[in-house]
Design a protein around this nucleic acid. Sequence first.
DNA 1: CACAAATCTAACCCTAGCGTGAGAATACAC
DNA 2: GTGTATTCTCACGCTAGGGTTAGATTTGTG
Lengths: 156, 156
Amino acid sequence: MSKQDLIKIGEFATLAGTNLRTLRYYEELGLLKPTLRSDGGFRYYRRASAQRVAMIRDLQELGLPLERIREIVGIQPKDGDRTALLQRVRRALEEHQLLLAAHLDALKAQQGRLETALAKLKDCSCCDELPAADNNFCDPCGSTGECLPEGLRALF
Amino acid sequence: MSKQDLIKIGEFATLAGTNLRTLRYYEELGLLKPTLRSDGGFRYYRRASAQRVAMIRDLQELGLPLERIREIVGIQPKDGDRTALLQRVRRALEEHQLLLAAHLDALKAQQGRLETALAKLKDCSCCDELPAADNNFCDPCGSTGECLPEGLRALF
DNA sequence: CACAAATCTAACCCTAGCGTGAGAATACAC
DNA sequence: GTGTATTCTCACGCTAGGGTTAGATTTGTG
């Protein structure tokens, strides 16, 4: 923890595999404060803090937004707090798991609608009938008598 | 198509099931222009144009961004262009299907990482060992000897 | 001391799809 | 003409994660 260990933001960014703007943005969000500020305002980081950046990145890859990450790792945990940290991480991950599941469901539903729409379009492509003047929804279809899927009502 | 048919934006919004801001936004994007502008600047729409809004909404529900939708329906198709329109829609939907699939894969991968991370966390919760001073990644784990999943390297 | 490289703050830009005003002007009924 | 409802054009706000300037300092070296 000697002064030797302190490096400026440029070197730290390289070390942590990121860039200046991102580090300053993290600081702005309260995610990672530089260990020291010089009188002139320069940021000085500990090399070891690169691990903190790695952790932030890891949690980002798991899909957590930076705000949530701050809630988890915003306060530098002491050694004894390891259990508490694990708790926080676990709760956040579980919560995020639910969100992710919901998001997946929504996208799968969208996928289903897309397939239906494409199937219907395939039918329509070989159809010569133009919709009647009073039924430009083609609903029900003049050929098959089927109703159109929701997502394509207005195509005709 | 007489002047009787032209309505102002408020009534049109109600008819189309949307609101003023959205309609003006659609116009800004080139999705739907009012049929007429009064000398004072008021927008006048045809009732029939509500179908166009419906179509935009339908394509939105299929997940297409408004920019793509504009590319599809940006130009008012004439009757004879139905085939061409169907083609454009089909191509756009197929393209979007690919994007959606990729998106789904990414989310599923995220889900997998989440599960792995949570499983590992469960192990760690019952672990009393603190990481050695020279290995604050707990990697490999002092208890099980297993390596940590990518997403949690920096937790320790 | 002088100079170059690094860093500082502040600010605006981007994607999407509007929400929500402010303040001015219009349209229409009476 | 006058009142009131409607609409007009800005223009900023939101989420996330920075990118990319500009102009001013600071640091460190010779």
